[in-house]
């Protein structure tokens, strides 16, 4: 009877199993980090140190080397992958980082499309269509073509959301994605897009300095942590 019925996949999209990063004078402490994020899960991590935040997301993305333990993404262990496969796997991750990484040599439209142009074979027209739809949802009038430096900080943030959600990522690593000063429409658009992504099975790691940024979205059953010099410590309650 049960033959042919697909079972839901509960393999964690992101799994850190006692992973100890190699300590480089500053940043993440060389302690054991353990975390499991299943499809559709949203994990909140409070971190007040920007360097630790950036290094933790790099640890999750297999960029920061580890001395012991394991870091798995979509069931694949970063350390066991060669460079090309690791880059391809990172193509399935949507990221928002402190340094947005805009390349000033290209217009914003190319900057937004860049990861999908690199990792996918979807036609340019199809990618533009997807980007325009997302841009409109985040309050941009369309896909901006100016150089990134010509856009306002708010529009650059909107463009960053578009880039992160492009291509239906399997994992979202979000470093301080929301500022409380952001317009309410943008806040709502971001949260509704985040919910839609989670419903598709995307796992989310939201790292922020301010707990209040996610307090309106967090549910009691969601995992919450605090990242600091003592490592990653689970926090009970909102």
């Amino acid at each position: 009877m049960s033959q042919g019925v697909s079972q839901p996949d509960y393999t964690p999209v992101l799994e850190l199993r006692e992973a100890v990063p190699i300590f480089d004078e500053e940043g993440l402490s060389p302690l054991k980090y353990t975390l499991a994020v299943e499809p559709g899960d949203c994990v909140f991590i409070e971190s007040r140190d920007d360097l630790q935040t950036a290094q933790f997301t790099n640890l999750c993305a297999g960029i920061l080397p580890i001395g012991s333990g394991k870091v798995r993404c979509m069931g694949l262990e970063w350390q066991a992958l060669d460079e090309r496969r690791a880059h391809a796997l990172r193509g399935r991750i949507g990221r928002i980082s402190e340094d947005s990484g805009w390349i000033d040599l290209y217009g914003m439209h190319l900057n937004i499309l860049w990861p999908r142009l690199h990792h996918s074979r979807s036609s340019y027209a199809k990618l533009v269509e997807e980007a325009v739809a997302l841009a409109l949802r985040f309050g941009l009038p369309g896909l901006p073509t100016q150089l990134p430096e010509r856009l306002s900080a708010l529009d650059r943030k909107r463009a960053e959301y578009v880039r992160a959600f492009m291509g239906r990522p399997s994992l979202l690593l979000l470093e301080n994605p929301l500022s409380l000063a952001a317009p309410k429409e943008l806040y709502n658009a971001f949260l509704s897009e985040l919910t839609a992504a989670r419903e598709r099975g995307c796992a989310v790691v939201w790292i922020g300095a301010e707990r209040s940024a996610w307090s309106g979205y967090a549910q009691p059953n969601m995992q919450k942590f605090r990242l600091g010099d003592n490592g990653l410590i689970e926090v009970r309650g909102v």
């Binding site: 990172r90 390349i103 990861p115």
Partner: peptide, 14 residues
Amino acid sequence: TQGRLNTLNGMGID
């Protein structure tokens, strides 16, 4: 120097 290449690396772009 601006760390843009590290960000690209983080998106899987060598």
